[in-house]
């Protein structure tokens, strides 16, 4: 939450060009989306701002990459690259059903647990 708060307070031109801060509406939507899709034991995401008040939530683990581009409320481009996916990954445009993302994150969590167990 603190990261989202920081991104909503960025100064215009934070990117070296003319990008505005992440919009409050996008940040709020992102927070609610994470609340509904993210299992408790999922790795913490990284959140980066976009050029138009948008933002992207991403995970880059050994097992897979997941990127959720919040273009606006109910307008999310979800992409995943994993060993089982096609060469360029799989992508979906999502509005208010994040079941796919919840599944991805559950797989990611399971893979992380398995990796820790085998390393122990």
């Amino acid at each position: 939450m603190s990261r989202l708060g920081e991104l909503c307070k960025l100064e215009d031109g934070w990117d070296g060009y003319c990008a505005p801060a992440v919009s409050f509406f996008n940040a709020t939507f992102a927070l609610n989306m994470l609340g509904s899709a993210c299992p408790m034991d999922a790795p913490a995401p990284q959140i980066v701002p976009g050029p138009d008040g948008d933002l992207q939530i991403e995970w880059h683990t050994a097992a897979m990459d997941i990127e959720l581009h919040v273009i606006g409320p109910y307008d999310v481009h979800a992409w995943r690259l994993s060993a089982t996916a096609a060469e360029d990954g799989e992508e979906f445009h999502l509005t208010n059903d994040f079941t796919i993302v919840a599944g991805w994150l559950a797989e990611m969590s399971e893979a992380a647990i398995a990796a820790r167990s085998s390393a122990a």
Binding site: D15, G16, Q46, V48, H60, A62
Partner: peptide, 22 residues
């Protein structure tokens, strides 16, 4: 292409930071 430090992410696969697709 100018890149803010806000756009760098950690990637476990390379165990280093790199630019986000953003």
């Amino acid at each position: 292409r100018r890149i803010s430090p806000l756009l760098w992410v950690y990637d476990e696969k390379i165990q280093a930071e790199r630019p986000s697709s953003m």
